[in-house]
């Protein structure tokens, strides 16, 4: 009776967005009279940081400071249409829509600035600090607050823009079967290290180390948060979580949150990750999705590590102590039969 260590590896190739009947999202931008750029969406921030990254993308595309951007979202009664926050699609789809809306809003911004500064719109640029200035002559500039006020009260214009991004539906080629169901794909590889107790069947995950290739990172800390959280969710799927431990029987099914096992602060293994940035062709500033994929590769990596540790394959999740002990017993019996 002993504890055995094992190492396992798994890789994931994850599509951003979906196909179905096409995958659209819309964004609307308008400037308030005091130069706040409101980006109206229906896309929901689930905590992954969508509002932050969309504000970053919007600020970059508009050429205004991050602080001047306000995200107004999640009311599907009043907002422009969004397919939703799923399929790791939101940053890609909504970001693209916002860039298009920003292009239209910038056009109006430059038209008004052109009147105010008495130069052609094409001779103007944003400085990213809240000013529009004459190229090569930065002392000739106008602050976006003054600009927004002038647009509204002097010229009767709304600084606004409409943006739409759609990934058109891709049909299957009847001859070859070829299709283009997603926009871009992110990749990751995870190595998990475990310790399996062959007496109790318990598995302790010691570390989860991953390399991610996810296009351009809009916000590296939020990406890290997705990877850390996903790693632990993956571990929980691999070892603990189920609503039917004896599926299809409902015996011992959790009757409430109390009995549904999720890892706590003391169950967290060492989590490490590196990110490679290979920008995608069609994402806003080259992004790909890094949401759901983070909970994927840890699961097979842990199952492979269990095999490496004690030589049994667990083929149904989660890998509970009972399943591991039964598999070990089966293995011993087979070895005894082989020895006879």
């Amino acid at each position: 009776m002993a504890k055995h260590r094992g190492v396992g590896m798994a890789a994931v190739n994850y599509p951003t967005g979906m196909n179905l009947g096409g995958d659209p999202s819309q964004a609307l931008i308008h400037a308030t009279t005091t130069g706040t750029f409101v980006i109206t969406l229906s896309s929901t921030d689930l905590g992954q940081g969508l509002k932050t990254v969309i504000a970053q993308i919007g600020a970059e595309a508009l050429g205004v400071p991050f602080e001047n951007v306000l995200i107004d979202t999640a009311d599907t009664d009043t907002g422009p249409h969004c397919m939703g926050t799923f399929a790791s699609r939101a940053t890609h789809r909504v970001g693209n829509a916002v860039i298009r809306a920003a292009e239209e809003a910038r056009k109006v911004m430059f038209e008004v600035a052109s009147e105010e500064l008495e130069v052609a719109p094409e001779d103007l640029e944003t400085d990213g600090q809240g000013n529009i200035r004459v190229k090569g002559s930065p002392e000739h500039s106008i602050n976006i607050v003054d600009l927004a006020l002038a647009a509204h009260f002097k010229y009767g214009k709304t600084i606004s823009g409409r943006g739409m991004y759609i990934k058109p539906k891709s049909e299957v080629d009847p001859d070859t079967g070829a299709m283009d169901p997603d926009s871009t794909e992110a990749h990751a590889c995870t190595v998990a290290e475990v310790e399996v107790d062959d007496e109790t069947g318990e598995v302790k995950v010691l570390s989860i180390k991953s390399a991610y290739e996810i296009g351009r990172q809009v916000n590296p800390k939020l990406v890290e948060g997705q990877i850390q959280g996903g790693s632990l969710m993956g571990m929980a799927h691999a070892l603990y979580e189920t609503t039917a431990p004896y599926y299809p029987a409902i015996d011992h099914a959790p009757g409430g949150f109390n009995e549904y096992i999720v890892p706590g602060p003391q169950d967290q293994p060492e989590i490490e990750s590196v990110v490679l940035e290979y920008p995608s062709v069609n994402g806003p500033f080259g992004v790909k999705g890094v949401g759901e994929m983070t909970a994927n590769s840890p699961i097979p990596a842990i199952i492979n590590a269990i095999h490496d540790a004690v030589g049994v394959w667990i083929t149904e999740l989660p890998a509970t102590p009972e399943k591991i002990l039964r598999a070990l017993e089966e293995k011993r019996k087979e070895e005894e039969r082989g020895a006879e």
Binding site: M233, G264, P265
Partner: peptide, 17 residues
Amino acid sequence: IREALSGNLCRCTGYQA
């Protein structure tokens, strides 16, 4: 710290942060 937080579950962050 982890012991003090052991009665508190977080589904998103993975606790490290």
